[in-house]
Design a protein around this nucleic acid. Structure first.
Lengths: 150, 150
DNA sequence: GCTTGACCTTGCCACTGGGGGAAGGTTCAT
DNA sequence: ATGAACCTTCCCCCAGTGGCAAGGTCAAGC
């Protein structure tokens, strides 16, 4: 993931390197996304074999797994970049990490609230709709409501 | 929004047409998005003046407001297309509208649940992090956790 | 050695729903 | 007649994927 030109693929495998497909299997991040993360500079450029195949170490795969877990918690790519830096920095202060996590919790909270208010408004409208063959429908009435008499 | 070539802008205004900027003001949908919705065929092509300016009727603006409200409830552009069709169809069955609304409520519910489980997991990790100058951090430990001993 | 097929490479296009801006034309008031 | 305000089209950007196409590499069987 850092050095360059690692000879043949067979060689590379013997030395403990994995192809992008294997890395994808082992980390749960698709090959596509591994390349994408490389292009975004979230991860450094992978080393290549003589045949120009990317090769990954167990450590790289560990890092990819880290990224995948962070994505699942909803962190953005930028935030994950920061988290990776902190993860690999032995001098980090856990305060920094906690601050980032709590900021993200707050973002999640506001998204949740937003969705909940949409949900409530819509469920309320739906509750007042007969839902039969007739055209009358408070849902459409509300969406098409005029703000002021026209 | 349907016919073509409406002569001069001044004429058009006298006949009750609005420019895209006015339509944006009155509907709350930006001029940018009005053009975008037209390109997506969510709304028909607007009529044009001799100078190629789009013109809109009060009815069009009403429709744009409908779209804006539906977006705020989280409906996708596709769903809004369907809702618009139902809105303008006097023969509609309110059952259809209600079904769409309830389906969307279910989608909102699953998104809310997803965010809530992220939120809970992250808040839990953060709660166990000292958040001080020391590097030890359960948040990073969890993100970097190996799935099986290696 | 040659073929086959799995895997890899790059690159482009699509989607969600917008935001921003450039380059140039139109309208209208002064 | 000129400048401001508004309009036009076109393109790039964001996040985070998925998919396709054309081509190169590798390992294995015959």
């Amino acid at each position: 993931m850092c050095a360059r030109a690692v000879a043949e693929l067979a060689d590379a495998r013997e030395r403990g390197y994995y192809s992008i497909g294997r890395a994808a299997e082992l980390s749960g991040v698709t090959a596509k996304m591994i390349r994408h993360y490389e292009s975004l500079k979230l991860i450094p450029k992978a080393a290549r074999t003589a045949g120009d195949y990317r090769v990954y170490t167990a450590g790289d795969i560990h890092k990819l797994r880290f990224i995948r877990r962070a994505r699942r918690l909803g962190f953005s790519i930028d935030e994950i970049g920061t988290l990776l830096g902190l993860w690999q920095n032995e001098q980090r202060a856990s305060k920094e990490v906690k601050r980032l996590a709590l900021k993200h919790v707050a973002e999640l909270d506001s998204k949740i609230e937003e969705l909940q208010s949409m949900r409530a408004a819509l469920a309320d409208l739906a509750a007042h709709c007969h839902g039969d063959h007739r055209p009358d429908c408070p849902i459409l009435d509300d969406l098409g409501r005029l703000p002021s008499p026209e």
